[in-house]
Design a protein around this nucleic acid. Structure first.
Length: 770
DNA sequence: ACCGTATTCAGCGCG
DNA sequence: TGAATACGGT
């Protein structure tokens, strides 16, 4: 067998071979992070570790799928698919199928997605006669979700004086009550939302020592990807699982932590060492993805952040093109200029459409880009958007499946009890809901025994309800003996959904019908082929693949997971957030303006601004060959034209990496004096006001002041024994010098921080004493 | 049951 | 501005 370790560089190899004990890998952008993770798992397997003893947690389903494929290729042994690899949610959803009975949940519990949760919250707010404006469902959900993420139960929430005070001050004292009701309703419906999957896992591991012991024994080796974006509950779960063996390896890059806004805690990675004193730390600093220009420009950005783990990303790749700056008058013009630029590059360099990606801060920005691309007949695809599984007709169909599997599923029941219309109206449902709340029963329990409750429902309606119950039951009894496709198809036709959509001859109706057909095709694939389940199945004695299994498989899918058949060779448009982990030869970052990027909401706090800067860093480092940055001076936002300035992030890039606009906007507003001033010629042209001129000229001074540190002469002159000063590390003494030319490295002993290896072209060393 | 109008929302979004 | 949904009238 080939020694796979030979594919790795030194640090990567060390990180892969350090299988025992706690390990942290700080992996710079493009430094081969995924490689380390996959090779590490492959290495463990080659060492003879049982795949069932390995737990690998990823950020997205897509990442786990890709990693699995690569590991299979590496070890060439189908056993590898038994590694527990997946997202936190899919892995622990699975754990809960085995053990949730201890906290009162059946193993066939439903999973509510965000829409389902919101519907339920809204219904509860209405039932409580609260003002929907004060208790906006989105807000309430966000608060509840945040609480669960921080392991605050409904009980804790209501008992916590500070929280209660905060809610009262905000004029929303009933949020705790809504949390309690919401939790109880989910429980009664045998449903968990996304947050519950993690929250309840933590409860199991916390309150049931035998469960904790079981999984500690099982997961002898734990790997966590994208550790910088983990939140508190994830942190706690990992900590508990790893407590016994401490064979834990986390991989991440603090510079790419961009999800604080939804609870990710960058301190998890910054403080990881505190939890495991005897930790081994590896830093992957060589970038294999991008040109020197891109790497250096990205470094010059991120250095402005205070809160970070020190590292020096460098590359052996060629210098490459300068970062091109495009200035536009309006957002529409920005779209045109970007599309033109893509077209030019495509022609001049003979590139395919899929060599290009356009990244933006907010989804609303895609419009002008789309229009311009369409005009030039450049095919594009928006990455993200409405997921197949979130379409109304699909959710309706899935609601039938959910109710068939879990009769208590309240959201599913409400969704379909009168769809297709069967004469069970609002008033009836209201009566049933009230009865359920009063009797502390699920809706299903009420309608299953409708004749025994005096709800004032007329006999006609009662018999229609009874017929509905009978129909669902007739589906439920076939869950075990029919495969997913047979039963799925039966439900689609018996429920009347197929007929309902078939009769709708509008274009929307037609497309809905087709979508249902597509869903059935997917189920057919699942039933027949040995499709790889998202999470390994341990005892697959079951010869048929059931509808229940299908639903578990897709419950945690997102649109990023739905394969797009004709996704090939198109320009990709997406938010920067969804670009995380991806790479493209040519990257356009658009709308790089103050108040948009960085977002206006981020300007209030240093932490938020630093997150925006990391986001910009992520955007830059997606590119392999060339980055183009654009901004517009006028932009439509919320129906108003707003005037914007170029983002501070543009100023932060060392200007020697930027190619400033030469020719102007298509509106021919070029200022004639451009040629007179070499400075203006370089900078943003057009109508620059005096203040901006002043600002820019100050900046240019800053740059030249900085440039002395970059002066190659320092690299050439530096000798062992010299006293030097580093911007962040302070004073130190050169211990040794290795390498030559631009890859020259010095080992320096600093008084304050100890010994460091520095790549001289980045380290802004100043010689203070020979 | 359905349609037209009113209202609301607009930072990023893993599962 | 524009889309997505809620509401209210027929």
């Amino acid at each position: 067998m080939k020694n796979i370790l030979e594919d790795l560089n030194n640090v990567q190899r060390c990180a892969v071979e350090a299988t025992e004990g706690p390990v942290i890998v700080i992996a710079g952008a493009g430094s081969g992070k995924t490689r380390v993770l996959t090779y590490r798992v492959a290495h463990l397997l080659n060492m003879g570790i049982d795949p069932f003893n390995i737990l690998a947690l990823t950020f997205t389903n897509k990442a786990s799928r890709e990693m699995k494929e690569r590991i299979l290729q590496l070890v060439g042994n189908a056993d590898a698919k038994n590694v527990w690899m997946g997202t936190f949610h899919s892995i622990f959803a699975r754990l809960l199928r085995y053990d949730a009975h201890r906290i009162g949940y059946p193993s066939n519990y439903s999973i509510y997605d965000t829409d389902d949760s919101k519907r339920l919250i809204k219904a509860i707010i209405k039932e409580q006669n609260l003002d929907i404006k004060i208790y906006a469902p989105n807000y309430v959900l966000k608060v509840i979700s945040g609480a669960k993420t921080n392991l605050i139960s409904a009980q804790d929430y209501n008992d916590n004086f500070e929280i209660q005070t905060r809610d009262k001050m905000a004029g929303k004292p009933k949020i705790g009550l809504l949390y309690t009701i919401y939790r109880n309703r989910c429980f009664k419906a045998a449903a968990m939302d996304f947050d519950d999957l993690l929250f309840n896992t933590n409860v199991l591991l916390r309150d049931f020592p035998e469960v904790l012991y079981k999984y500690q024994q099982k997961f002898k080796y734990i790997l966590v990807d994208e550790y910088q974006d983990t939140n508190y509950v994830q942190y706690m779960i990992i900590k508990k699982l790893a407590a016994n063996n401490e064979n834990i390896c986390v991989v991440g890059d603090d510079a790419q932590s961009i999800y604080a806004f939804r609870g990710a805690n960058i301190q998890n990675i910054l403080n990881f060492k505190n939890d495991y004193p005897d930790i081994k730390e590896f830093k992957l600093e060589q970038n294999y993805r991008s040109t020197q220009t891109i790497v250096n420009a990205a470094n010059s950005i991120i250095i402005n952040n205070k809160n970070q783990i020190f590292k020096q990303i460098w590359t052996q790749n060629s210098t490459g093109d300068l970062i091109q700056l495009i200035k536009a008058n309006t957002d529409n013009e920005e779209g045109i200029l970007v599309a033109n630029s893509i077209f030019e590059n495509k022609m001049n360099r003979q590139l395919q459409n899929d060599a290009f990606a356009v990244l933006y801060r907010t989804n609303a920005q895609s419009r002008s880009i789309e229009e311009a691309l369409r005009k030039l007949n450049i095919p594009y695809r928006i990455y993200g958007g409405i997921s197949f599984y979130k379409r109304r007709e699909i959710k309706d169909m899935l609601a039938y499946y959910r109710l068939t599997i879990n009769n208590k599923d309240e959201d599913a029941l409400i969704r379909i009890i009168n769809y297709p219309a069967r004469g069970i109206g609002k008033t009836t449902i209201e009566k049933i809901t009230i009865a359920a709340n009063k009797n502390k029963k699920s809706l299903w329990e009420i309608i299953n025994d409708i004749s025994n409750y005096q709800l004032g429902i007329n006999t006609g309606t009662q018999s229609r309800i009874a017929a509905f119950v009978t129909m669902i039951k007739s589906f439920s009894v076939q869950l075990e003996n029919k495969n997913a496709f047979e039963l799925g198809k039966l439900i689609a036709s018996s429920s009347g959904i197929m007929k309902d959509l078939y009769e709708d001859k509008t274009p929307e109706g037609l497309s809905r019908y087709e979508n249902i057909e597509e869903l059935l095709n997917a189920i057919k694939d699942f039933s027949e082929k040995e499709t790889e389940p998202l999470v390994a199945v341990e005892n697959s004695e079951n010869s048929i693949r059931t509808l229940n299994e299908f639903m578990q498989d897709i419950a945690l899918l997102t649109d990023a997971d739905t394969k797009d058949k004709d996704s090939t060779n198109k320009v990709l448009l997406m938010t920067i957030h969804s670009a995380k982990g991806l790479e493209f030869p040519y990257v356009y970052i658009v709308g790089v303006e103050e108040n948009l990027f960085p977002s206006i909401q981020s300007l209030g706090s240093r932490a938020d601004l630093e997150e925006e800067r990391r986001l910009f860093y992520v955007a830059l480092t997606r590119a392999e060959q060339k980055v183009t940055i654009s901004y517009a001076e006028n932009r439509y936002r919320w129906g108003d034209i707003t005037i914007s300035e170029p983002s501070r992030f543009i100023d932060e890039i060392d200007e020697k990496y930027i190619e400033f606009p030469q020719k102007k906007s298509i509106h021919n507003k070029t200022v004639s004096s451009v040629d007179n001033s070499s400075f203006l010629n370089k900078k943003f042209v057009s109508t620059i006001d005096k203040n901006k001129l002043k600002k820019i000229s100050n900046l240019s001074k800053t740059y030249s002041a900085n440039n002395q540190y970059f002066d190659t002469s320092v690299i050439d002159v530096l000798q062992t024994g010299m006293q030097v000063k580093h911007l962040r590390f302070g004073k130190g003494k050169v211990v040794s010098i290795e390498g030559k030319g631009s890859n020259k490295k010095a080992t320096v002993f600093f008084k304050n921080v100890g010994q460091k290896q520095l790549l001289l072209k980045f380290a802004k060393l100043e010689i203070i004493n020979q």
